[in-house]
Amino acid sequence: MSSPTDRPSGQLHLLFVRHGETQDNIDKILQGLRDTSLTEKGLREGEILAKKLQNQRIDAVYHSPLNRIVQTIRPILADRSDIPVHADADLTGQSLGQLEGGSYDTIDMSNPRSADGQPGVELFDDFVRRLKKVLAVIVGTESRQVGEQDRTVLIATHGVGITSIFKALEASPSCEGFNPKLAVRGPEAYEVRWTDSDDVAKLVVPRPRDLPVKDGSLDWSALSGQPFVIERWGKREKAL
């Protein structure tokens, strides 16, 4: 009798998008968990993103519940009323406590741990662990639904979240200590501080049925090798 891994299997594609422009982006204000809305330009950026994805099959959507994210993905979902959509608070950006509403100059934007220790701030390490936890649930759930065809999932979150999880998977210096290197980078993937609103970053699991899943969640401790491929990330001209 053949095992599940013996049967032909498609790949799991994870598409990551961030929100469009907000007034806080313009004013260089730290948003964190502030529930801001898109500007007129930001709403147009959502339409541009939807047009970019109009011919892309999407099987499920997971998103941060903050309004700027909801507004951004609304055009993407307009003609996809039949797919499951999941709001998850673990996909919000890093909580910045009393720094929220303050200037970018309050912290060193190049150092992900520079806000640690400030009142109410979620420690950066705790933030990355939260991202890994929600990604484990998404990958654990969706990998078991991959059949002979590829399955594509859209994850709408915040720029700092996309950058942090990709760097963690790569075990880059700013995100070391969370796991061994679990991802390789393709030729169209460029490390960036944050993605633009029209970017669609892409993480691929070539052999999803081989992933260790326990209680519906990816078991990070049982992973070996580099099961993830960062196929697309940022723009060459904005690479670090």
Rank of each mutant, 00 (worst) to 15 (best):
M1A: 14
T5M: 13
T5L: 06
D6P: 05
R7N: 12
P8W: 07
V17G: 09
H19E: 06
T22F: 00
Q23E: 15
D27G: 01
D35V: 11
T39V: 05
I48A: 14
V61Y: 01
H63F: 08
S64E: 04
L66C: 06
N67V: 14
I69R: 03
V70N: 03
V70H: 07
I73P: 02
P75K: 04
L77T: 12
A87K: 12
E100G: 02
E100F: 04
I107K: 08
I107A: 05
D108K: 01
D108Q: 10
S110D: 11
S110T: 11
R113M: 08
G117I: 09
D126A: 08
D126G: 05
D126K: 12
R130P: 12
R130C: 04
K132Q: 13
R144T: 06
R144L: 14
Q145L: 15
Q145G: 13
V146R: 03
G147K: 13
G147S: 15
E148A: 11
D150A: 04
R151N: 05
T163F: 05
T163A: 14
S172T: 15
S172D: 12
P173E: 15
P173A: 05
G177F: 10
N179T: 10
P180T: 09
A183D: 01
V184L: 13
R185S: 14
E191D: 14
E191G: 10
W194Q: 14
D196W: 07
R207C: 04
L218R: 01
P227M: 06
K235V: 12
L240D: 12
